[in-house]
């Protein structure tokens, strides 16, 4: 018999919190909601936790049936990575296609990293990514605040050499492929930009 959570009339994030708590103790649950945002958020939570979701609409109310099945589901959430979080920045632009836009996105991304919680443990800059950490870069202040917060910033020495920028490196340490590959191989999670 499935437990039922009546989340009708509750404002977000209350339905999600109640569902999460209940799913930690139950594999079979029914959640009643009467709000679209609550419905979508509860469904997403359950799916992300590896459950299977069915819904049944009754007027403005939705009955969400959440349960665990033994079939193979998405890996998401199944493996909790252990080890440092490493952000790999392989270019001075974010995404491919339009470099002007990519420059804007990179500035925006690095600024949000300074406010991220948790911050990455290490950032690796290579190829044109090293240009972000040299004199004249518009994101030096963000990289500096990351470095000051304890983020280890590695700039690829070969790349700095290639662009003749080694003398201009302002933030981070000149690194080599041994350190870079070792850092990537021992990372708990890699976020590649």
């Amino acid at each position: 018999m499935a437990n039922t959570i009546d989340a009708r009339g509750l404002a977000c994030p209350q339905p999600v919190i109640l569902t999460k708590k209940a799913l930690e103790a139950n594999d079979d649950l029914i959640v009643l909601v009467d709000d679209t945002a609550a419905r979508e958020n509860v469904k997403r939570l359950a799916i992300n936790m590896g459950f299977v979701v069915e819904e049944e609409h009754q007027g403005s109310e939705t009955r969400i049936r959440i349960n665990k099945v033994s079939v193979c589901t998405r890996a998401q959430g199944a493996i909790t990575p252990q080890g440092p979080v490493v952000v790999v920045i392989a270019s001075n632009t974010m995404g491919r296609g339009e470099d002007v836009l990519g420059g804007v996105l990179m500035k925006s991304f690095l600024h949000t990293l300074t406010q991220a919680c948790p911050m990455p443990d290490t950032m690796i800059l290579f190829n044109t990514g090293v240009k972000l950490a040299v004199k004249g870069s518009e994101v030096l202040d963000d990289l500096e605040s990351l470095a000051n917060a304890g983020v280890n910033i590695l700039a690829c020495g070969t790349c700095l050499n290639y662009f003749s920028l080694k003398e201009n490196l302002i933030v981070g340490v000149v690194s080599n492929m041994y350190d870079i590959s070792q850092t990537m191989l021992t990372a708990g999670r890699i976020v590649q930009i």
Partner: peptide, 9 residues
């Protein structure tokens, strides 16, 4: 114009 600014999200 040399005005200090920053592009942010």
């Amino acid at each position: 114009r040399g005005i200090p600014y920053k592009l942010i999200p």
